[in-house]
Every structure is written in structure tokens, then in C-alpha cells.
């Protein structure tokens, strides 16, 4: 089944990105296709490669990058929400790309299921 994901919150402040990550991973392991993960609101902060969490904690953006590399997942950051928060190409973690909000609506249209994680 084709699944699309919307992540509304940034890393650490809320569990939303962690839940979305675990859900995405489980969906892939079950053989589903994750069409795209779209990052909106503060969720765009997941794409900030400058984040340096302490070494005994998870690195949320790096974890998305690795999952995307491993399974070819399209990680899209909303351009309007990103610019508002200073997330630009030069600080974008690998595997993320910046595009328009229309890419979220596309998920809703093209995916069999759309799942939202937020606060």
C-alpha cells in the first residue's frame, strides 16, 4: 500500500518526529511503499543538518537521512515554512529537499493513506 506521512513538529520539543520515524520504518518493514514524508510547520527543523544532539541521544535529522538513503524515501520540506524559520539549502541535511506545499496535497491525492504526526 502507498502511504504518505506529514510531520508537523521539529525534533526533540515533541515526540511527533520520533513517532513518525518509527511508523515510517515499520511501514517499510511491512513491505509498504512510503511515497513521501512531508515536513510542515516546525517540522521543517527536522532537515537542519547543523543540529548536534549529545552523543548519548538520537540524532533526529541524521536518522531521517539514513532511512531515506536506505529505502529511497522522498523527504520534502515546505519552502514557505522553511524560509520562515531560516531552513535553507545550505543547511539542509542529505536526503531532504525543499519544495512547495503542493507536494503535500499530492501525497493526499496519490497515496492510499495519509498519516499525520504533530502536537
Amino acid at each position: 500500500m502507498k502511504i504518505g506521512i506529514l510531520v508537523n513538529e521539529g525534533p526533540f520539543n515533541h515526540q511527533a518526529s520520533d513517532s513518525a520515524y518509527q511508523f515510517t520504518k515499520a511501514a517499510i518493514e511491512k513491505g509498504h511503499q512510503v511515497l513521501r514524508v512531508f515536513f510542515y510547520y516546525d517540522g521543517v527543523n527536522n532537515a537542519n543538518k547543523l543540529a548536534e544532539p549529545q552523543s548519548d541521544d538520537r540524532n533526529v535529522s541524521k536518522r531521517w537521512t539514513e532511512l531515506a538513503k536506505q529505502h529511497r524515501i522522498d523527504l520534502v520540506v515546505c519552502i514557505a515554512a522553511a524560509l520562515r524559520r531560516g531552513i535553507k539549502e545550505d543547511i539542509l541535511a542529505d536526503g531532504f529537499r525543499i519544495s512547495g506545499l503542493g507536494q503535500l496535497i499530492e501525497i493526499g491525492i496519490a497515496a492510499d493513506r495519509t498519516v499525520v504526526f504533530g502536537d
Binding site: L35, Y41, A68, R72, D74, G102, G108, A110
Partner: peptide
């Protein structure tokens, strides 16, 4: 790998029912 995803998803001819659910007050959060 980013280049692989420049395209858009196929949405032609599909019409779905979209709901936008607002439960939060304005200004206190975005």
C-alpha cells in the same frame, strides 16, 4: 539521490475528499 525525486506524484484525474480540521486558536501558536 535528490535528483530522483524532482518529479511530482501522479494526481491527474483523481478527485478525493479533503478535510482541513482546525482545533486551535489563532496567534497563540502558528
Amino acid at each position: 539521490m535528490e535528483d530522483e525525486f524532482q518529479g511530482t506524484l501522479e494526481t491527474e484525474g483523481v478527485r478525493k475528499n479533503f478535510m482541513f480540521l482546525n482545533r486551535k486558536a489563532p496567534y497563540g501558536s502558528i
